[in-house]
Design a protein around this nucleic acid. Sequence first.
DNA 1: TTGACATATCGATATATTACGATATGATTT
DNA 2: AAATCATATCGTAATATATCGATATGTCAA
Lengths: 106, 106
Amino acid sequence: MKVTKKNIGKPQGDVASFVPAAECLKTLAHPARLRMVQLLLSGKYSVGELAEDCQVPDNVASEHLRLMQRCGFLTSEREGRMVFYQIAEPHLKSLMNCIEGRFLNS
Amino acid sequence: MKVTKKNIGKPQGDVASFVPAAECLKTLAHPARLRMVQLLLSGKYSVGELAEDCQVPDNVASEHLRLMQRCGFLTSEREGRMVFYQIAEPHLKSLMNCIEGRFLNS
DNA sequence: TTGACATATCGATATATTACGATATGATTT
DNA sequence: AAATCATATCGTAATATATCGATATGTCAA
């Protein structure tokens, strides 16, 4: 590749390559959804339990969980009349570590 | 602290403690802004250079940069008629490493 | 000082996101 | 089967965000 003034030292990729990352980060960028991910990284929770912890109605919790499922963060499993969600994206753990390290260290 | 059925094994914090994190993540969750952070982690760039790389007009780039400055990610410094932005938040580096590791490894 | 360049700001519009209430589905108990 | 519980979906209204064009500010060069 020819090296010009324009690309010396530039990191790989371009703005387009960040489109999927931006979508997933947007999905994560909500207090209730962050808290849900944190909880699910530590154990098993039903929709109702997550809703109660996050202080949102059940249907709102359900929508948050559906969004995270859509982008591959979570999977769900029904047990009786409850539904349990779990982490499906392994990178979420290190990502949450970064976030907790920055924002929960007060 | 008393241990009850409700809090066994729950990670510290609650949904409210994630409000600032969610705001900052929302700021980061845009393709152009992610690319700008990636570039600024690797070197020095003016507004115009960032705008060109991200393929947005100068004023749009300027607004993106202002948003990131507002939440403490960046600082700016004028040199002549150009303005250079730089990373102000050290955690951005590890956060970008997580993001690149997940989304730019195809 | 005039003109050109780089960046920033403002107002308006278009689009996206969020939350809510109502209703629907699925499962269990009586 | 009917009632109840847990979750999901849908329409809608409120709010937030993104983008654009126009204009403003600040800097330099002629």
